[in-house]
Simulated scan of single mutants.
Amino acid sequence: MREGEPGACLACGLADGSVPLPGGTLARTAHWTVEHCVGPLGVGTAVVKPLRHVTGVHELTPAEAAELGPLLRRVSAAVRTAVDGCEQVYVCLWSHAGRVPGHVHFVVQPARTADLDRHGAYGPALQTALFAEGTPPDPEAVVEACARLRRELAERRA
């Protein structure tokens, strides 16, 4: 299934391999997958999402919920170390696609000095500016960042 078709879910397609994922899967647990963001939030931005199609945190099973906090901490630490110029790491939940609740995912985004300076913004305003700019990350840079993130995540394995 593809976006726009009934029942289609881009997040599920990226996770199951039916949609190409630049850089590949960064890490997997029993219930979660970690990938590089396919949107314009910059090189080194990771996405943490449940393997099961879930549209809200309230739908998580106890086992999924138990893995979430430690995994977000691990991914945040990996992003902080792997991305040059990272001043802070933003973690936010997104779950809408076309104003319809979609596959819940946590965006783990490096707040890079260069992006903060270029847009004169931080926090949600920085994300808004990056989306308005709409520049997708360079595919080669994504692959390189994924290799660094994968190494960092492996070193932080629980």
Rank of each mutant, 00 (worst) to 15 (best):
R2S: 11
R2Y: 15
R2D: 14
E3N: 14
E5L: 10
P6I: 00
P6H: 09
P6M: 01
G7H: 02
A8K: 04
C9L: 01
C9K: 08
L10C: 01
L10D: 07
L10I: 07
A11D: 13
A11Q: 11
C12H: 07
C12N: 10
G13Y: 04
L14G: 10
L14K: 07
A15N: 08
A15C: 09
G17V: 01
G17P: 08
G17N: 07
S18N: 09
S18P: 12
S18M: 02
S18K: 05
V19C: 06
P20K: 06
L21S: 05
L21E: 04
P22I: 07
G23D: 12
G23K: 14
G24D: 07
G24K: 01
T25R: 14
T25I: 15
T25V: 15
A27M: 09
R28Y: 08
R28C: 12
T29M: 04
T29D: 13
A30F: 09
H31N: 11
H31M: 02
H31S: 13
H31I: 00
H31E: 15
H31D: 13
W32S: 04
W32N: 07
T33S: 15
V34P: 06
V34Q: 02
V34L: 06
E35L: 15
E35W: 13
H36Y: 03
H36I: 00
H36T: 01
G39K: 02
G39W: 14
G39Q: 08
P40Q: 03
P40V: 00
L41H: 12
G42D: 08
V43G: 01
V43I: 02
G44A: 00
T45M: 05
T45F: 12
T45P: 09
T45H: 15
A46S: 11
A46K: 01
V47T: 09
V47L: 09
V48Q: 04
K49Y: 09
K49M: 15
K49N: 02
P50T: 01
P50C: 01
P50E: 10
P50A: 00
P50K: 00
L51F: 07
L51W: 12
R52Q: 09
R52E: 08
H53F: 13
V54C: 15
V54L: 14
V54I: 14
V54G: 10
T55C: 09
T55V: 13
T55E: 14
T55W: 03
T55Y: 06
G56C: 05
V57C: 08
H58Q: 13
E59S: 14
L60S: 09
L60M: 13
T61Q: 11
T61F: 13
T61G: 14
T61Y: 14
P62F: 02
P62E: 06
A63Y: 12
A63L: 08
A63E: 15
E64K: 11
A65W: 13
A65P: 11
A66C: 03
A66H: 13
A66P: 11
A66W: 13
A66F: 10
E67F: 10
L68E: 11
L68N: 07
L68M: 12
L68Y: 08
G69P: 10
G69N: 10
P70V: 00
P70E: 03
P70F: 04
P70G: 04
P70N: 03
L71G: 04
L71I: 11
L72A: 05
L72D: 08
L72V: 03
R73L: 08
R73N: 08
R73H: 13
R73I: 00
R74P: 02
V75Y: 04
V75E: 05
V75Q: 03
S76N: 10
S76F: 09
S76V: 05
